[in-house]
């Protein structure tokens, strides 16, 4: 009998362990693509991003090259001014960090929120003020900004004063998936054509909504302030399909606005 038990235990164990293999998904690093270049004869500027530039929150990676010897310039301090040139006027847009130096990844990084697409209305240019070797050089790079398929930036007039224009950019989720997703938004307002400050001290309510079935999802975490006008939370999707990320934005107890982002994923 022992022999049999033994044999069966072995067979059983083979079954058990044989079916326990786990698979690990590889982590894919997002690769950068070149979206625009420009130069002033002395230095060249290359703008890279993960996608085409779009209306919304864009993380730009900048390479600066000394054209005389094609060497990278790594010790510069760079200031940028994005500018929309329209028929009768020009305006800039929110930039999280207007001035920067080289980061640990060997790039100059800027977070720019384009507020409208390039097109018949006007065109975008980014002016780079590159300060290195004791002097400041200016490079103007024209860029093309598209309107993404899914809106990543919502603007509205404040419910409070009915005049101030607010801009809410959806940073995360970039490619939403079923399950738990990071949710990050940044909020700005238009103080003037040239001044688009981040808005701090807001509070949010969050409700993801599946419109085609009229239901939500549980256990979401409404975005809370992490500084610099950014707000972070968690959004849960229980299935694929058309989802709305419904936000309610408040200043104290006062409603500012209710931006809704729609997202579709398979």
């Amino acid at each position: 009998m022992k022999k049999y038990i033994h044999t069966f235990s072995v067979v059983a164990l083979i079954f058990i362990f044989g079916s326990c293999a786990e698979k690990n998904d590889p982590v894919v690093e997002e690769s950068l693509v070149e979206v625009a270049t420009g130069d002033n004869g002395e230095i060249g500027v290359t703008i890279q991003s993960t996608t085409e530039l779009f209306v919304g929150f864009n993380s730009l990676s900048i390479n600066v090259t000394n054209l005389t010897d094609n060497s990278s310039i790594n010790d510069a301090t760079i200031t940028i001014i994005p500018m929309m040139h329209m028929m009768t006027m020009s305006h800039t847009c929110p930039v999280d960090n207007k001035t920067t130096t080289l980061n640990e990844k060997g790039k100059y990084n800027f977070d720019v929120v384009f507020v409208m697409p390039s097109g018949d209305m006007g065109y975008w240019e980014i002016t780079f003020k590159v300060e290195y070797g004791g002097k400041i050089q200016e490079v103007v790079v024209p860029v093309n900004v598209i309107q993404p398929e899914e809106t990543k930036l919502i603007s509205f007039v404040s419910e409070q004063d009915q005049t101030t224009k607010y801009f809410v950019a959806l940073i995360d989720p970039k490619s939403p998936q079923v399950g738990e997703n990071d949710l990050e938004v940044s909020v700005y307002k238009k103080a003037s054509m040239m001044d688009w400050p981040a808005v701090e001290g807001l509070s949010f309510e969050l409700e993801p909504w599946m419109t085609s079935m009229d239901h939500g999802s549980p256990n979401n975490i409404a975005p809370v302030e992490i500084g610099n006008g950014h707000y972070k939370g968690k959004v849960n999707f229980t299935m694929t399909g058309d989802w709305e990320i419904r936000l309610t934005m408040k200043e104290g107890n006062n409603l500012v606005g209710s931006p809704v982002f729609t997202t579709v994923f398979q």
Binding site: S212, G241, Q266
Partner: peptide, 8 residues
């Protein structure tokens, strides 16, 4: 759904 993407 009649309108919108399939949900899985």
């Amino acid at each position: 759904p009649d309108v919108g993407s399939p949900m899985f």
